[in-house]
Amino acid sequence: MSTPEPVAVVLVDDHRMFRSGVKAELGDTVRIVGEAPDVDTAVAVIREQRPPVVLLDVHLPGGNGNGGVDVIHGCRGLETPTGQPVRFLALSVSDSAEDVIAVIRAGARGYVTKTINATDLTTAVRRVADGDAVFSPRLAGFVLDAFGAAAGEIAEVDEELDRLSAREREVMRLIARGYQYKEVAKELFISVKTVETHVSSVLRKLQLSSRHELTAWAMGRRLL
Protein backbone atom coordinates (compact mmCIF):
# COMPACT_ATOMS: atom_id res chain seq x y z
CA MET A 1 0.00 0.00 0.00
CA SER A 2 1.93 3.03 1.19
CA THR A 3 5.32 1.34 1.53
CA PRO A 4 6.47 -0.78 -1.40
CA GLU A 5 9.11 -2.39 0.78
CA PRO A 6 8.10 -5.74 2.28
CA VAL A 7 7.03 -5.70 5.90
CA ALA A 8 9.24 -7.63 8.31
CA VAL A 9 7.21 -10.12 10.30
CA VAL A 10 7.88 -12.63 13.04
CA LEU A 11 5.62 -15.65 12.78
CA VAL A 12 4.66 -17.34 16.03
CA ASP A 13 2.74 -20.59 15.76
CA ASP A 14 3.27 -24.00 17.29
CA HIS A 15 2.39 -25.87 14.11
CA ARG A 16 5.36 -26.13 11.79
CA MET A 17 3.13 -27.06 8.88
CA PHE A 18 1.05 -23.94 9.34
CA ARG A 19 4.17 -21.76 9.54
CA SER A 20 5.59 -23.10 6.30
CA GLY A 21 2.16 -22.76 4.68
CA VAL A 22 1.90 -19.10 5.63
CA LYS A 23 5.47 -18.48 4.51
CA ALA A 24 4.80 -19.97 1.11
CA GLU A 25 1.53 -18.08 0.73
CA LEU A 26 2.79 -14.67 1.70
CA GLY A 27 5.64 -14.84 -0.77
CA ASP A 28 7.69 -11.66 -1.08
CA THR A 29 5.15 -9.04 -0.04
CA VAL A 30 5.91 -9.89 3.55
CA ARG A 31 9.34 -10.82 4.81
CA ILE A 32 9.41 -13.43 7.57
CA VAL A 33 12.39 -12.50 9.72
CA GLY A 34 11.82 -14.99 12.49
CA GLU A 35 9.74 -17.91 13.64
CA ALA A 36 8.90 -19.32 17.03
CA PRO A 37 6.92 -22.34 18.17
CA ASP A 38 6.32 -21.37 21.81
CA VAL A 39 6.01 -18.43 24.18
CA ASP A 40 9.58 -18.27 25.46
CA THR A 41 11.23 -18.61 22.05
CA ALA A 42 8.76 -16.08 20.68
CA VAL A 43 9.66 -13.45 23.27
CA ALA A 44 13.36 -14.02 22.65
CA VAL A 45 13.03 -13.84 18.85
CA ILE A 46 10.80 -10.74 18.93
CA ARG A 47 13.14 -8.97 21.36
CA GLU A 48 16.03 -9.72 19.04
CA GLN A 49 14.33 -8.87 15.74
CA ARG A 50 12.04 -6.06 16.87
CA PRO A 51 9.75 -6.41 13.82
CA PRO A 52 6.94 -3.98 13.03
CA VAL A 53 4.41 -6.83 13.02
CA VAL A 54 4.14 -10.15 14.83
CA LEU A 55 1.71 -12.75 13.51
CA LEU A 56 0.67 -14.42 16.71
CA ASP A 57 -1.18 -17.67 17.30
CA VAL A 58 -3.56 -17.44 20.25
CA HIS A 59 -2.82 -20.93 21.59
CA LEU A 60 0.84 -21.56 22.34
CA PRO A 61 2.73 -23.82 24.71
CA GLY A 62 5.03 -22.41 27.38
CA GLY A 63 4.97 -19.17 29.34
CA ASN A 64 2.30 -18.88 32.01
CA GLY A 65 -0.07 -21.01 30.00
CA ASN A 66 -1.89 -18.08 28.45
CA GLY A 67 -0.46 -18.51 24.98
CA GLY A 68 -0.39 -15.39 22.82
CA VAL A 69 -1.34 -13.16 25.74
CA ASP A 70 1.91 -14.09 27.48
CA VAL A 71 3.92 -13.17 24.38
CA ILE A 72 2.28 -9.73 24.22
CA HIS A 73 2.94 -9.17 27.92
CA GLY A 74 6.53 -10.35 27.50
CA CYS A 75 7.16 -7.83 24.71
CA ARG A 76 5.52 -4.83 26.34
CA GLY A 77 7.10 -1.53 25.44
CA LEU A 78 9.25 -2.98 22.70
CA GLU A 79 9.94 -0.73 19.73
CA THR A 80 11.17 -1.29 16.20
CA PRO A 81 14.48 0.30 15.11
CA THR A 82 12.43 3.13 13.57
CA GLY A 83 10.73 3.92 16.86
CA GLN A 84 7.35 2.38 16.13
CA PRO A 85 5.85 0.01 18.68
CA VAL A 86 5.96 -3.71 17.85
CA ARG A 87 2.39 -4.57 16.84
CA PHE A 88 0.59 -7.86 17.09
CA LEU A 89 -1.95 -9.45 14.76
CA ALA A 90 -3.67 -12.43 16.33
CA LEU A 91 -4.26 -15.44 14.15
CA SER A 92 -6.32 -18.31 15.40
CA VAL A 93 -8.44 -21.32 14.54
CA SER A 94 -10.47 -20.70 17.63
CA ASP A 95 -13.65 -18.68 17.49
CA SER A 96 -14.26 -18.69 21.19
CA ALA A 97 -14.97 -15.28 22.64
CA GLU A 98 -12.59 -15.85 25.53
CA ASP A 99 -9.67 -16.08 23.14
CA VAL A 100 -10.70 -13.06 21.10
CA ILE A 101 -11.29 -10.83 24.06
CA ALA A 102 -8.17 -11.92 25.93
CA VAL A 103 -5.75 -11.34 23.10
CA ILE A 104 -7.30 -8.04 22.02
CA ARG A 105 -7.37 -6.71 25.56
CA ALA A 106 -3.75 -7.75 25.99
CA GLY A 107 -2.93 -5.34 23.16
CA ALA A 108 -3.25 -7.09 19.80
CA ARG A 109 -4.13 -4.74 16.95
CA GLY A 110 -6.42 -7.20 15.24
CA TYR A 111 -7.80 -10.66 15.04
CA VAL A 112 -8.20 -12.85 11.98
CA THR A 113 -8.99 -16.53 11.63
CA LYS A 114 -6.55 -18.93 10.03
CA THR A 115 -8.89 -19.55 7.11
CA ILE A 116 -8.09 -16.05 5.80
CA ASN A 117 -6.68 -16.01 2.26
CA ALA A 118 -3.20 -14.78 1.41
CA THR A 119 -4.24 -11.45 -0.11
CA ASP A 120 -6.37 -10.53 2.88
CA LEU A 121 -3.64 -11.58 5.25
CA THR A 122 -1.11 -9.41 3.42
CA THR A 123 -3.48 -6.46 3.57
CA ALA A 124 -4.07 -7.11 7.25
CA VAL A 125 -0.34 -7.23 7.98
CA ARG A 126 0.25 -3.94 6.15
CA ARG A 127 -2.66 -2.34 7.92
CA VAL A 128 -1.35 -3.40 11.32
CA ALA A 129 2.13 -2.19 10.37
CA ASP A 130 0.58 1.22 9.61
CA GLY A 131 -0.89 1.29 13.10
CA ASP A 132 -4.46 0.54 12.10
CA ALA A 133 -6.73 -2.13 13.45
CA VAL A 134 -7.88 -5.24 11.64
CA PHE A 135 -11.33 -6.60 12.33
CA SER A 136 -12.66 -9.79 10.84
CA PRO A 137 -16.44 -9.91 10.24
CA ARG A 138 -16.71 -12.21 13.21
CA LEU A 139 -14.85 -9.86 15.51
CA ALA A 140 -17.10 -7.03 14.32
CA GLY A 141 -20.15 -9.13 15.15
CA PHE A 142 -18.72 -9.83 18.55
CA VAL A 143 -18.11 -6.13 19.18
CA LEU A 144 -21.68 -5.26 18.16
CA ASP A 145 -23.00 -7.85 20.54
CA ALA A 146 -20.69 -7.07 23.44
CA PHE A 147 -21.31 -3.32 23.34
CA GLY A 148 -25.05 -3.77 23.06
CA ALA A 149 -25.00 -1.94 19.73
CA ALA A 150 -27.11 -4.64 18.13
CA ALA A 151 -29.67 -4.03 20.86
CA GLY A 152 -29.70 -0.31 20.02
CA GLU A 153 -27.36 1.16 22.64
CA ILE A 154 -25.53 4.10 21.15
CA ALA A 155 -23.00 6.41 22.78
CA GLU A 156 -24.01 10.07 23.11
CA VAL A 157 -20.44 11.27 22.88
CA ASP A 158 -17.76 9.52 20.88
CA GLU A 159 -15.41 9.32 23.84
CA GLU A 160 -17.71 7.12 25.86
CA LEU A 161 -15.84 3.88 26.39
CA ASP A 162 -18.72 1.55 27.12
CA ARG A 163 -20.74 2.13 23.98
CA LEU A 164 -20.16 2.55 20.28
CA SER A 165 -21.00 5.80 18.55
CA ALA A 166 -23.58 5.69 15.77
CA ARG A 167 -20.86 5.93 13.14
CA GLU A 168 -18.74 3.22 14.73
CA ARG A 169 -21.77 1.00 14.85
CA GLU A 170 -22.38 1.55 11.13
CA VAL A 171 -18.77 0.71 10.33
CA MET A 172 -18.88 -2.42 12.46
CA ARG A 173 -22.14 -3.51 10.85
CA LEU A 174 -20.69 -3.18 7.38
CA ILE A 175 -17.55 -5.08 8.34
CA ALA A 176 -19.72 -7.81 9.83
CA ARG A 177 -21.58 -7.93 6.50
CA GLY A 178 -18.32 -8.80 4.79
CA TYR A 179 -17.38 -5.36 3.41
CA GLN A 180 -13.78 -4.40 2.84
CA TYR A 181 -12.59 -1.08 4.29
CA LYS A 182 -12.81 0.65 0.95
CA GLU A 183 -16.32 -0.66 0.41
CA VAL A 184 -17.29 0.60 3.83
CA ALA A 185 -15.83 3.99 2.92
CA LYS A 186 -17.79 4.13 -0.31
CA GLU A 187 -21.00 3.03 1.37
CA LEU A 188 -20.77 5.68 4.07
CA PHE A 189 -19.31 8.41 1.82
CA ILE A 190 -16.20 8.73 3.93
CA SER A 191 -12.53 8.12 3.23
CA VAL A 192 -10.75 4.86 3.93
CA LYS A 193 -8.63 6.75 6.42
CA THR A 194 -11.76 7.73 8.35
CA VAL A 195 -12.92 4.12 8.36
CA GLU A 196 -9.54 3.14 9.77
CA THR A 197 -9.88 5.81 12.44
CA HIS A 198 -13.28 4.48 13.45
CA VAL A 199 -12.03 0.90 13.61
CA SER A 200 -9.03 1.95 15.69
CA SER A 201 -11.31 3.81 18.06
CA VAL A 202 -13.49 0.71 18.43
CA LEU A 203 -10.38 -1.31 19.13
CA ARG A 204 -9.41 1.15 21.83
CA LYS A 205 -12.84 0.85 23.41
CA LEU A 206 -12.61 -2.91 23.24
CA GLN A 207 -9.29 -2.77 25.06
CA LEU A 208 -10.17 -0.18 27.66
CA SER A 209 -13.86 -0.59 28.32
CA SER A 210 -14.92 -2.04 31.61
CA ARG A 211 -18.33 -2.83 30.26
CA HIS A 212 -19.29 -5.89 32.22
CA GLU A 213 -21.01 -7.58 29.30
CA LEU A 214 -17.70 -7.64 27.56
CA THR A 215 -16.22 -10.03 30.04
CA ALA A 216 -19.41 -11.68 31.19
CA TRP A 217 -20.43 -12.31 27.63
CA ALA A 218 -17.06 -13.70 26.78
CA MET A 219 -17.15 -16.04 29.73
CA GLY A 220 -20.70 -17.17 29.36
CA ARG A 221 -20.87 -17.87 25.68
CA ARG A 222 -18.72 -18.59 22.71
CA LEU A 223 -18.72 -17.04 19.30
CA LEU A 224 -20.73 -18.79 16.66
Partner: peptide, 9 residues
Protein backbone atom coordinates in the same frame (compact mmCIF):
# COMPACT_ATOMS: atom_id res chain seq x y z
CA UNK B 1 -18.76 -23.01 -1.11
CA UNK B 2 -17.76 -21.68 2.29
CA UNK B 3 -20.19 -19.27 3.89
CA UNK B 4 -19.06 -16.94 6.65
CA UNK B 5 -21.77 -16.47 9.19
CA UNK B 6 -21.84 -13.70 11.76
CA UNK B 7 -24.82 -13.36 14.05
CA UNK B 8 -25.53 -10.92 16.84
CA UNK B 9 -28.44 -11.21 19.20
Amino acid sequence: IPIDLVATG
